[in-house]
Nucleic acid binder design. Structure first.
Lengths: 225, 225
DNA sequence: GGCCACGTTCAGCGGGCCTTCAGGTGGGAT
DNA sequence: ATCCCACCTGAAGGCCCGCTGAACGTGGCC
C-alpha cells in the first residue's frame, strides 16, 4: 500500500510518515504542490494525502490537475481548520474525502484505508458503460471492438457522462465540467454536442447510449444502449 | 539504467534529474538521507548518486547502512568541497567513487556509467513501441533493423513519448519533462521537434508512430504506426 | 577565426473544430 | 385539441490549433 503525503509542515509530515509506516504503508513525502504533483505523476500510489494550503501550487490545484490528466488516485484532503474547506470546490476538483486538522491518527488511518479500498475498486483505468469503452489516458473510445474518433470536446463530454454512468447530469453540470465554470453562452451547445456524439457512438450501431431526460438533463445508460 | 539521486539542494537535484534523463537514465529523487535509504531499499537501482551532507541521515551513514544490509548497489558520493571527504571513512563505508562540487556534468555522467558498469548487472532496458526500439542508456534508436541518428532533444522527446506509449501526453507535460518544469517559452517548440522526429522516424518508413490528438497532445502508437 | 550542427524563435497558412443561429419537432399540460 | 417549451437539426462562418519553412543565435570543433 503506497501513499504519498503532500504536506509542508515538516513536523506533521514526519509524524505522518513514521506513523503510517508503522501501519504498514510505504510512504513518500512531498513538501510542496509542485513536488507533490510531480511525484504523483511519476509514481503509482494507492492513495494521496494532500494538504490544502501549500507553497507553490495549492491542494485544490494539485487535485484538479491530476484529475484533468486522467489520474484518479484516491485523494484525502487535509484542511487547517473548519471552514477553510470549500466543499463544493473540493468535490469539483475530485477529492475523495477530507479531514480537519487536528485529527485523530487512528481515524486518519481508517479513512485512508477506506478511501484507498473504494478507489482501488473504482479507479477508472478505463471507463465502461455497456459495450462502450473509454480510455482517458490514451484518449480512445471503442464501441465493442470498433474504435471511434472523437474531437476534443466530444471526448470531454463523453468522458464526463461516463464518469456519471447511470446518473442524470444537468445541462448546467455539463457546461461547468466540459466547458467552463462560468460559461455564459448558449446552453444549446450541449444539445449540439450530444447530437455529434450520438452520430458517432450511437447511430452507426443502432443503439441509444445517451438518453435525454426531458427537463432534467442527459444520462449515459449503464446498459450501453 | 536506473539511478537514485539523493540530494537536498532542490536546484541541483532538479538539474541532475533533467540532465540525467536527457542522457537516458531513469531518475528517482530523494531529498534527505532517510528517504534515500528507504528508496534504495525499496527499489533496485543501477547506481546511486549520494550527497554527503544531508538533512536527517548523512551520506556516510546511508552508505554504510546499505552495505550492512548487504546492498552493494554502486554509489557515487558528492561532496560540497575538497577536504570534506574523508577518504578513509569514505572507503570504509563502501562508496565506489566520489566527486567534488562543483563538477562537470559530462564527467559525472561518464563516471556514473563507469561505476554502474563496474557494478556489473548490465541491464538492457529498452523501450519498445511497435517496431521502434529505443535504448536509453546507449542513446540509440532503431526502426526495425535500421539505426536512426537523433539529436539530444529529439532523443529526449522520443524517450518521453516512449515511456508513455499508448497514452496521450499534453504539450505542457512534454515541456516539463523534456525541457524544464518552468519553461515559459513558446510551446511551438514542441511542434517543431515533433516534426523533426517525424521526419526521421516516420517519414522515411511511411509510418505514423507519432499521432497528433488535436486539443490534447501527442501519442506514440503502441502499434508503431 | 570560420564552419557546422543544433536549439530556438517567428510569421504565415490551412483545415477542421467550435460555436452560433434559425427553424423544426414532439411531449406534456391545460 | 391546442399551446408552449424543451430539445433536435442542419448549415455556415470565424477562429484556434497545429504545421511548415526559414532565419537567427550559440557553442563546439577543426
Amino acid at each position: 500500500m503506497r501513499v504519498l503525503v503532500v504536506e509542508d509542515e515538516k513536523r506533521l509530515a514526519w509524524s505522518l510518515r513514521v506513523g503510517l509506516e508503522a501501519e504498514g504503508f510505504a510512504v513518500d513525502l512531498a513538501a510542496d504542490g509542485t513536488d507533490g504533483l510531480w511525484m504523483a505523476r511519476e509514481n503509482d500510489y494507492d492513495v494521496i494525502v494532500l494538504d490544502l494550503m501549500l507553497p507553490g501550487i495549492n491542494g485544490y490545484k494539485v487535485c484538479s490537475t491530476l484529475r484533468e490528466d486522467g489520474d484518479w488516485t484516491p485523494i484525502l484532503m487535509l484542511t487547517a481548520k473548519d471552514g477553510e474547506w470549500d466543499q463544493v470546490e473540493g468535490l469539483d476538483t475530485g477529492a475523495d474525502d477530507y479531514m480537519t486538522k487536528p485529527f485523530s491518527f487512528p481515524i486518519l488511518v481508517a479513512r485512508l484505508r477506506a478511501v484507498a479500498r473504494r478507489g482501488a475498486r473504482e479507479r477508472p483505468v478505463q471507463l465502461v458503460a455497456g459495450d462502450l469503452r473509454i480510455d482517458p489516458a490514451a484518449r480512445r473510445v471503442w464501441r465493442g471492438d470498433t474504435g471511434i474518433e472523437l474531437t476534443a470536446r466530444e471526448f470531454s463530454l463523453l468522458a464526463f457522462l461516463a464518469r456519471n454512468t447511470g446518473d442524470v447530469v444537468s445541462k448546467r453540470q455539463i457546461l461547468e465540467a466540459v466547458w467552463d465554470v462560468d460559461f455564459d453562452g448558449d446552453p444549446n451547445i450541449v444539445e449540439v454536442y450530444v447530437r455529434h456524439l450520438r452520430n458517432k457512438i450511437d447511430r452507426p450501431f443502432g443503439r441509444e447510449a445517451i438518453q435525454t431526460i426531458r427537463g432534467a438533463g442527459y444520462r449515459l445508460g449503464s446498459d450501453g444502449g
